[in-house]
């Protein structure tokens, strides 16, 4: 028990230190480097302070929260489905968001409401898919059925989006495709603070459910025999991950691979105890996306790359490395 406590302390402390370093780097680096020792000299209303408070801080917080929520959702879904290849987008959540955005461009909602319109449409699309999955789970319980339904919905949404794009104007098509690449360029202080609220609530819920998720590792039926009410737990986890993913997609478009690669790597390093893995995945996802965003806005000058593209390339590379590398044995305390 003492070993476990020191392991938890070491992992949590180490990952928080790593996150702090990445946040400092993200705040400091850019076209105009502003190092921490220069912050005290930058008075209120100065250009440095405006860049820090109005641009870099919201963007860094947004990256941290979105990376954290996507990674934590991936971690929960991989545990729920006992499948390391599941991520938030496997269940069609991102497909629903893309469909929502494509519909909003075709229906003129974005032209009238701007980015708020696309965010609402993306959230509605994601939440709609989440609700369909919840309804389906009530009709046909079982995580296997649910995963299959999610994959089918994802394919369906993707096909309908392609159909809509093929009949839309070239301008709309370009804008929808650019949205699907994911970007943190439009982060605002208000958005960053509301994302912080969602993250704290999501992380607290994830940690509270983590011990039950450990039991799901033995199989849904065994978990039920041990007193876990899977009829409530499975929809609760699905609702939590759907809501968090919908918030992320609505805020920054589709940012793939964070929810797949980060929990996968951390599980092989820290073990499959979800009481540790959930908070560490959140922090790890935040670190990964903050670093990807830093790269996205540093590689090309002037301008920047879509962060989703950087995540895909970096995450894909890491994933291929993991597949090639010999497997290390996991230790999964309950």
């Amino acid at each position: 028990m003492q070993n476990r406590a020191s392991k938890y302390a070491l992992w949590t402390g180490g990952s928080v230190a790593c996150l702090s370093l990445c946040v400092l780097l993200s705040l400091s680096l850019g076209e105009m480097p502003i190092w921490p020792w220069q912050w005290r000299g930058a008075g209120p209303g100065s250009m440095e302070m405006n860049i820090l408070v109005q641009l870099r801080l919201p963007r860094t917080l947004t990256a941290l929260c979105i990376g954290g929520m996507l990674s934590m959702s991936g971690c929960i879904l991989q545990g729920l489905f006992k499948n390391p290849l599941v991520e938030p987008y496997t269940l069609g959540i991102s497909g629903g968001a893309s469909l929502g955005v494509a519909l909003s461009f075709l229906g003129g909602i974005v032209q009238r409401w701007g980015s708020v319109g696309s965010s609402i449409s993306a959230f509605a699309g994601s939440a709609g898919i989440g609700l369909i999955l919840l309804f389906y789970h009530r009709k046909r319980p079982g995580t296997g059925n649910l995963l299959l339904a999610g994959i089918m919905l994802s394919i369906l949404c993707s096909s309908v989006t392609t159909l809509l794009l093929s009949i839309s104007t070239p301008e709309n098509m370009t804008r929808v495709i650019y949205w699907t690449m994911g970007s943190l360029s439009y982060a605002t202080p208000q958005q960053a603070f509301s994302l912080c609220g969602f993250s704290i609530a999501g992380l607290a819920s994830g940690i509270l459910l983590s011990q039950r998720l450990n039991l799901m590792n033995l199989g849904e039926q065994t978990a039920r025999h041990l007193g876990v009410n899977t009829a409530i737990l499975v929809p609760a986890l699905l609702l939590l991950t759907s809501c968090l993913t919908a918030v992320c997609v609505a805020s920054a478009g589709i940012i793939g691979f964070v929810g797949l690669v980060v929990p996968h790597i951390l599980r092989s390093l820290a073990g499959a105890d979800y009481r540790l893995l959930i908070p560490v995945s959140f922090i790890g996802g935040g670190v990964f996306l903050v670093l990807c965003d830093l790269l996205a806005r540093s590689i090309v000058h002037p301008g920047q790359l879509p962060v989703g593209v950087v995540c895909g390339i970096l995450g894909g590379g890491l994933f291929v490395y993991l597949l090639v590398k010999p497997q290390k044995k996991q230790n999964a305390p309950a």
Binding site: Q211, L215, A272, A332, P333, A334
Partner: peptide, 24 residues
């Protein structure tokens, strides 16, 4: 199942029905 779960933890899971839902 041959899970990489410590034996003691595996046996302790039998205490789950006596725990409150928020006890980690």
């Amino acid at each position: 199942e041959k899970l990489p779960v410590p034996v003691l933890d595996f046996v302790m899971m039998g205490r789950t029905p006596f725990k409150k839902w928020h006890q980690l």
